[in-house]
Design a protein around this nucleic acid. Structure first.
Length: 417
DNA sequence: TGACGTCAAGATCCG
DNA sequence: CGGATCTTGACGTCA
């Protein structure tokens, strides 16, 4: 059972990908963006290895305009060595990678040019995984597409178009239920005909349930039957409805309580992809709690990154967490993350924010320039008088930390959530 | 015709 | 001029 997250690493400098707009997509620019993004991917893998994360979705944006005529580079040859090295890193560290073409890749459209573009996009993703040397267990997730007023006919068209895809693509494709049109039951019926494995998405299933009334556990077991030996472990998507988001919007973090209620329902030997705004933070939280039941000493690394954030929400919770880790009464992972969640749910408190900012400033103040000091004081005053936001203070502090390469600060979640 | 989702790039504004 | 904030992009479907 691996727990993973999608595309981005929060809070680790060097993992950011870059892009460009169409009019700037010159050969040279694309080349340097790809080079930059492959290095970013290397940093992401390094982070995952360091944090015991063995399941990861690769961003489709690593090759800008990867399936667009604007990009004519033979990138898989030009960057072959980098791809090989990345692939070795993935394999040697037992990481499972997957990709997820976006909502605009529609294989069942009535418009032939849309289908042609969808095929090009699937070819791009497949080529990317092949360049890394990934086998058939590295999957590409796809939704069924539009309904066009007739779901039966649209489903039939999906099945009809499926053989247009290459062997490699067909062996990688897995199909997911969505929250608008195709229920897990609809997807299973299509997948029986294409021979594709099915990804169960719990939030989509909750928003758009199947006509047949089955529990989440029953649907996951139905999906499990579509996974063959060569496909590797069954995959599911897990997310929670965001409190202030539109229906289907993902939560800021994966709250432990509902996740731990769900987890026992998941069939054994299943990989769980978390879809959540705080990405790797939630992956670490869930892995440390349900997979390895991390000890206090192992949570120190997490605490180092969370501490100023927690302090900025509540000095009281900050003290509680310190006490918890000091007492070392095992197990503490659940208590630790529950306290962090409690801090996240608090409304912004000006006193707590200023207090935390002062603590962080303490790292910088002694060797700061007058300009930095003045700016800091001005921002604090502005914040207290409600003329500016806490984020402008954080931005300034972060810039100062980066200038001095203060890694301990730069890695703090305080700046990212 | 605009919302949907994504999030950095690009554009513009501000002091 | 640097930094902050707002808008755009690139895709297809659907109301």
């Amino acid at each position: 059972m691996s727990i993973g997250y999608a595309c981005q690493v929060i809070g680790v400098p060097g993992t950011e990908t870059s892009r460009c707009i169409l009019k700037n997509a010159s050969e040279d620019n694309l080349r340097s963006l790809i080079y930059h993004n492959l290095n970013a991917l290397d940093a992401m893998l390094h982070y995952n290895i360091d944090n015991n994360i063995h399941f990861f979705r690769l961003s489709s944006d690593i090759i800008p305009f990867g399936s667009h005529p604007a990009n004519q580079l033979i990138w898989w040859e030009e960057f072959e060595e980098m791809f090989m090295a990345l692939g070795e890193k993935i394999k040697n560290n037992n990481i499972r990678v997957s990709m997820h073409p976006g909502q605009y890749t529609v294989l069942n459209s009535p418009d032939p040019s849309t289908i042609a573009n969808a095929i090009l996009d699937l070819e791009y993703h497949d080529r990317f995984l092949n360049a890394l040397g990934m086998d058939q267990t590295s999957k590409m997730v796809l939704h069924i597409g539009g309904v066009y007023g007739d779901k039966k006919e649209a489903s039939r068209r999906f099945v009809e178009n499926f053989p247009l895809l290459s062997d490699s693509i067909r062996s990688r494709l897995i199909l997911e239920n969505d929250d608008k049109s195709y229920t897990v039951e609809d997807v299973l019926n299509i997948a029986y005909q294409t021979g594709s494995p099915v990804v169960f998405d719990n939030l989509h299933n909750a928003i758009k349930p199947s006509e047949t009334n089955c529990t989440e556990q029953e649907w996951m077991l139905e999906c499990k039957k579509t996974w063959k030996e060569v496909d590797g472990k069954q995959k599911i998507h897990y997310s929670q409805q965001g409190k202030n988001s539109p229906v289907g919007g993902h939560s800021e973090t994966v709250f432990l309580k509902p996740f731990e209620d769900f987890y026992p329902l998941v069939p054994p030997e299943t990989d769980i992809m978390l879809e959540v705004k705080d990405k790797n933070l939630s992956a670490n939280k869930c892995i440390n709690t349900v997979c390895i039941n991390a000890k206090a000493v192992e949570l120190e690394k997490e605490w180092a990154r969370y501490k100023y954030y927690v302090l900025s929400r509540s000095a009281r919770i900050y003290t509680e967490v310190r006490q918890l880790l000091k007492d070392k009464k095992e197990p503490v992972a659940r208590e630790f993350y529950t306290m962090v969640e409690k801090a996240m749910l608090l409304p912004e408190d000006m006193g707590a924010e200023v207090n935390a900012a002062e603590h962080v400033w303490g790292y910088i103040s002694k060797e700061s320039t007058n300009a930095e000091k003045n700016r800091y004081q001005k921002l604090i005053t502005g914040y207290k008088e409600k003329n500016s936001s806490i984020s402008s203070i954080k931005r300034h502090l972060f810039t100062c930390a980066v200038k001095r390469n203060l890694e301990y600060l730069m890695n703090s979640y305080y700046f990212y959530i």
